Simulated assay, not measured.
Amino acid sequence: MNSDILKEFERSKSKDKQEGYEAYQNILAATDSKVDWAYEVWDQLLEDLTHKDNHQRSRASQYLANLSKSDPEKRILNDFPMLWEVTKDEKFVTARHCLQSIWKVGIAGEEQKNMVMNYMVERFQHCQAEKNYTLIRSDIIQNMRNLYDILDDENIKTMAEQLIETVEDIKYKKKYKNIWK
């Protein structure tokens, strides 16, 4: 890992919000493509998924989702349940940031895509008791759209359409359908 990216990880934990945010943006940009240093930070990121600071949990989850494409050992297949737990974080904003980036794990390969889809389908079907479940469902449908746009897998579109059809509230059904227009 080059020293610049290492500094960005250090800066991302800064007490200075602006400095931390800039570093966060730089790390997301760096991990948008495959990198050869994913495993140098992987274990720390897993640890940070349960950090006392919700910003660190949020960032760690987003970094791991991005780094999944740089995971030739497919560690994410074993570590995904820890990442998924952040989608249920006590701080809804943290949970939502994680959920909105979780689709990126699915572009890492067929196994990863199937795993992410299974988790999202199950959550969509059983999240009605959760607070803000309509936002959770919206994020899941958007995640499926993001995966479809990159992978062009008709099974993803079909599954999203089937889930949308199970929604009884006309307002939300329409909202979810609009994601696919």
Rank of each mutant, 00 (worst) to 15 (best):
A108D: 09
I156W: 03
D152P: 01
E110W: 03
V93L: 15
K131I: 08
E110Q: 11
F80T: 11
E73D: 13
K91E: 14
I76R: 12
E130V: 03
Y176R: 02
K91W: 14
G106V: 03
H126L: 00
W84R: 13
I141A: 06
V116S: 13
K157T: 11
Q125T: 00
K171L: 08
I170D: 12
I140M: 04
W84K: 15
W103S: 15
D153M: 04
N66D: 14
M120T: 10
K173L: 05
E111M: 12
N114Y: 02
M159I: 10
T134V: 11
V105C: 05
Y133F: 12
D71H: 13
A160I: 08
Q112M: 08
F92L: 08
I141E: 08
N118C: 09
L147R: 08
V167T: 09
I141S: 06
V121L: 03
E85H: 09
E168L: 00
V86C: 06
N146Q: 14
A108S: 14
M144V: 04
G109R: 06
E110N: 10
Y172N: 07
Y176E: 03
K74D: 06
Y119I: 09
K113W: 03
R123E: 13
D149I: 04
D139M: 10
M159V: 11
A129E: 00
P72H: 04
N78V: 05
Y176A: 01
C127I: 08
N78R: 12
V86D: 05
K104G: 07
D169K: 07
E85D: 15
E165V: 01
Y133Q: 05
I164Q: 01
D89C: 06
M159R: 10
D71F: 12
L163P: 02
G109D: 07
K175S: 11
S70I: 06
I150K: 11
D152T: 10
M115A: 04
D71T: 09
V116K: 11
Y176G: 04
S138C: 12
V121D: 08
I150N: 01
D149V: 07
K173E: 09
V167R: 01
R75S: 09
E154C: 02
P81V: 04
E111Y: 07
H126Y: 00
D169F: 01
I170H: 10
N146C: 10
C98H: 09
E85Q: 14
I156N: 03
K131F: 07
A65H: 01
L163V: 08
N155D: 10
E110T: 11
R123Y: 12
L83K: 11
Y176D: 03
I170S: 08
D71L: 12
K157M: 10
I164K: 02
V121N: 02
L151H: 03
K173V: 07
A95M: 06
A129D: 00
M117Y: 02
